[in-house]
């Protein structure tokens, strides 16, 4: 697949956004600036961005608790996302979602889910509305290797296959569900499960390579948009941080050597080298890009910091389209 240079640079930019945003969020958790739980996508940026950028602007997407990368990858503004993490009124969900429940409908992000697997049927419904209304939009459901053992995935795969829905099921196989190695709880190969639902299933073995992910997901998206139905794409990747920030487990469930080997395959460093190697951009341009994204994240942080908390009455807002009952 040939890709214009600006698309390639945009990929690097979005990966950097996720990395810097999540590094900042991690620091904020340590400093007590973010209440609650935070799961970063550090190390998985290629998998997220390769998938998101295979979608068109108007396409839909749902995700999970490892949530920041998805809307960022889809092009969401960073300020309201950061403000959401700190529970501010200017947050993308007005401070009512938080880290695990980001949604930015402006970029087709229909919501992340704190319940593992639970957003998969929602993405399926977005594909259904696209099909019934004839809007041509494609829907993509992000979920982990852990979620791949939830029953609702298979209900959704079967339903979307018999209805030929324009959806891509994207399994982010970072090889662990919290402390549980995927191979100890998962029979067979996740991608091969697609065969049971009469849809293509592909496994991207090198999910640290943004172009490989992009290729595979683009094929699935094009197929969906052409009315040929759903696909399952499994991407093998690795999270560099702990399952969630600040989590300290008694057992060393991940082999340090394994982690070190994967850390060497940093998707952002790898793609930077690729861009230089192919003469698409030089170090000066790429350094400038990094500085630009660092400034964006800093501005997002400032925005969040300077924003006010929501009024107490906001806790009663948006439950229904018109309020009734307890409203303050």
């Amino acid at each position: 697949m040939t890709r214009p240079n600006d698309l390639l640079l945009e990929m690097q930019k979005r990966m950097l956004r996720i990395r810097f945003f999540d590094e900042r969020a991690s620091k904020m958790v340590k400093r007590g600036e973010i209440p609650g739980t935070v799961h970063t996508s550090i190390g998985q940026e290629a998998q997220v961005v390769g998938a998101c950028m295979a979608l068109a602007e108007g396409d839909y997407m749902t995700g999970n608790h490892r949530s920041h990368g998805h809307p960022i990858g889809k092009g969401a503004a960073l300020g309201p996302l950061m403000a959401e993490l700190t529970g501010k009124a200017t947050g993308v969900c007005g401070g009512k979602g938080g880290s695990m429940h980001l949604a930015d409908f402006k970029v087709g992000s229909l919501g992340e889910s704190g319940i593992v697997g639970s957003s998969i049927p929602i993405a399926t419904g977005a594909a259904l509305s696209s099909k019934v209304l004839g809007t041509g939009r494609v829907s993509l459901a992000f979920f982990g290797d852990g979620a791949a053992n939830q029953g609702c995935l298979y209900e959704a795969m079967n339903l979307s296959s018999v209805w030929d829905l324009p959806i891509v099921f994207l399994c982010e196989n970072n090889q662990y569900a919290l402390s549980t190695p995927a191979h100890t709880v998962t029979a067979g190969v996740i991608a091969e499960r697609a065969a049971g639902f009469a849809m293509p299933g592909v496994r991207v073995e090198d999910g640290q390579d943004v172009l490989k992910v992009h290729d595979a997901v683009k094929t699935a998206v094009d197929r969906a948009r052409a009315g040929q139905g759903p696909s399952l794409v499994e991407v093998i990747t690795y999270r560099f941080n702990e399952h969630s920030e600040g989590l300290k487990l008694g057992t060393d469930y991940r082999n340090p050597a394994e982690r070190e080997a994967w850390m060497k395959r940093d998707p952002i460093k790898m793609f930077r080298a690729h861009l230089i190697d192919k003469g698409i951009a030089d170090a000066v341009v790429l350094d400038a890009l990094e500085a630009e994204v660092a400034a964006e994240v800093e501005a997002a942080y400032q925005f969040a910091e300077e924003s006010d908390y929501p009024a107490a009455s906001v806790a009663f807002k948006d439950l229904y389209t018109e309020p009734f009952g307890v409203t303050q």
Binding site: Y60, T62, L110, S118, I120, P121, I122, A123, T124, G125, A126, A127, L128, S129, S130, V132, R137, S139, C152, A156, L159
Partner: peptide
Amino acid sequence: GAAAGAAMT
């Protein structure tokens, strides 16, 4: 879930 997702879109 699909009905919910369809209603949201």
